[in-house]
Design a protein around this nucleic acid. Structure first.
Lengths: 342, 342
DNA sequence: TACCCTATATTGAACGCTCATATCCACCCC
DNA sequence: GGGGTGGATATGAGCGTTCAATATAGGGTA
């Protein structure tokens, strides 16, 4: 471990107290309980705090109060071949929502030699953070199990198991896909296909379930195709096969916009036109799809609301010790565009 | 402010000391200066630490040592119409690189009523972090000016001014674009156009400079077009105009892959084919471009190396007080694909 | 034997803050 | 005038750690 230069100490509460001719506690009160001070004292002290640029040391405050005002977010591993373009926006929303309440977001990632639980444990045991925000929740997620066992505050983007704290927020993907299928049924499609990637993203299951439910509800004939992996070449190849087949569906529900991009490419290669020869609907509303012609009908995730709900639920647990009795399911927003056909 | 339940205190150094029948300091040494203990004692204490699950409280440690082992990263504002899909990968690389040395990344964002400097100041004055990692550096960036004035450690992804600390890392975009233009010159193009967005991203200037230098070097005729903003519709419209014009260029250098997406769409609309009717090269290597046909020639950013260099420079400053004498310019990686033409 | 040096372990203080408690003072009531 | 009341401020302690200073023993050296 390298030599560490202790950082030059800043102005402390003692400095301000001396300068103001009052005690430490009065300064502390000026910041934490202003109503306890005489108006005149408060004004004088506040001016002095401002002038000296005093800010309470976060570590000292934390040590005493046991509270860090920091939330940890284990960053999902980002597949370089299919990065999540919504990550930036989601993080931004989370950081803003947390910031409103004076909390900050700490990014975490297990070291190569560490399990996910170990990485969480390190923060938890060292009392570095007040709670965790989890995303990309798996069935039987080990992180959820661990935090539940420790009784440590967390909120999850994605559903937790029945026995666990229901501090989750999720998008009602099932309903959203049912609605998408409904749009297709309205336009007279009878033969629809679902395109999934088999690379095991947890959310794909819900979307598939939504497809099945939608097909059943509207009495359509539904088939399911799995693309092995997310690489564009494979997606395009698999989709071309689907489009070139004899029993070609009249409409495709893609499990995500990323897959839909492959459908556009495949259709072009096969000399077909989306919206005319085959209808296409998808999920995620990735901004890049705005370059597609015709524009893609898809489902937009309410990222801002998700972030706000996650943070507010987590803070309820941290600050008031109240765990929500049930999860929160937010609706996806249908964005109807011409790929749906006439 | 809401009532705060102090978190249940964990096992402290005192607990371990009592259990081991030694003093606090011995436990502290076992972790921070193991060589000072007799082998036998060390073993016994280490086992006990493990058994009791003791982890030094980060706040207490910070309070005493003045060091936080946390680096702040002000999250760039993400334009929802053109989010940065590389953000996730960059953050991941930064988090990993910092994690290697035991540092964590704290995300920051000014509150609506705050300036950027104020947001930094809040962390700096409250001694919440040891240093800053900045990206999207502007000319005369106020954050750089502020941190320089405070003498506070920072490293920047993007160049700082001559008078300021040269703790920056950047991609040699100028050289990369010169190389791109070289590729076009090799293939006999004489009439090339540069497509920039005028929404003021700081990196666009370098790319434009690279274009100018490349054109000069290779004796080509170069024109420049500015797209007003990043919205796909505008990009496509502007590009169509360019392609439909009488003096259409034979090759286009797009200032970024995002703009190149618009060129593909425009070419299709105009009945042209990229690589045959017009050559196209761009910058960023966004993963989505893998769906484009023909594939795009572009420049890949060495994000992992950038992240590692940034973190190692920052830690040098924080831990050893050594500011690098000059910035680090990393080469972009040319990725040649068929959009370049035969 | 006296002295110093090294290896190992302990003790007291301090980091900067906030909590709980104590003090002071003016005022009011009977 | 004794005693209570309440507002404003001060004091002491302690959060969990590490640093500096100090103790103790054993061994080598003069």
């Amino acid at each position: 471990m390298a030599t560490r230069r202790p950082r030059e100490r800043g102005v402390t509460i003692e400095d301000v107290a001396r300068a103001a001719g009052v005690s430490r506690q009065t300064i502390s009160n000026a910041l934490n309980a202003p109503h306890r001070l005489k108006a005149e004292t408060l004004e004088r002290v506040t001016a002095l705090i401002e002038e000296l640029g005093y800010r309470p040391d976060q570590s000292a405050r934390s040590l005493k109060s046991g509270t860090r005002r920091i939330i940890a977010y284990p960053t999902p591993v980002d597949d370089p071949a299919n990065p999540n373009p919504l990550m930036g926006g989601f993080l931004e929303a989370v950081v803003s929502a947390a910031g409103e309440s004076g909390y900050r977001i700490l990014l975490v990632r297990p070291r190569p030699d560490q399990s996910q639980e170990q990485a969480l444990d390190e923060l938890l045991a060292a009392r570095t953070v007040d709670g965790f925000l989890l995303s990309d929740i798996l069935r039987d997620d080990p992180r959820v199990a661990y935090l539940t066992a420790e009784g440590f505050p967390f909120a999850a983007f994605g559903r937790t198991e029945p026995g666990q704290p229901q501090a989750w927020v999720d998008v009602d993907s099932v309903q959203a896909v049912v609605d998408l299928v409904g749009l297709l049924a309205d336009r007279g499609h009878g033969e629809v296909a679902f395109l999934a990637s088999s690379s095991g993203q947890p959310w794909m299951d819900d979307r598939r379930d939504g497809f099945r439910a939608g097909v059943r509800r509207h009495g359509l004939r539904g088939r399911e195709f799995a693309v092995p992996g997310d690489e564009p070449a494979r997606v395009v190849a698999a989709t071309r096969e689907l489009l070139a087949g004899a029993d070609r569906p009249t409409a495709i529900v893609a499990g995500g916009d990323w897959l839909a991009l492959g459908v556009y490419a495949a259709a072009r290669a096969e000399g077909m036109e989306i919206g005319r020869d085959v209808a296409l609907v998808a999920f995620d509303d990735l901004p890049v799809t705005a370059f597609l012609q015709p524009a893609l009908t898809t489902v937009r995730l309410p990222l801002r609301r998700i972030a706000e709900a996650l943070v507010s639920r987590l803070l309820r647990i941290i600050e008031d010790g109240v765990t929500p009795p049930s999860g929160l399911l937010l609706p996806g927003e249908l964005v109807v565009r011409p790929s749906l056909g006439p």
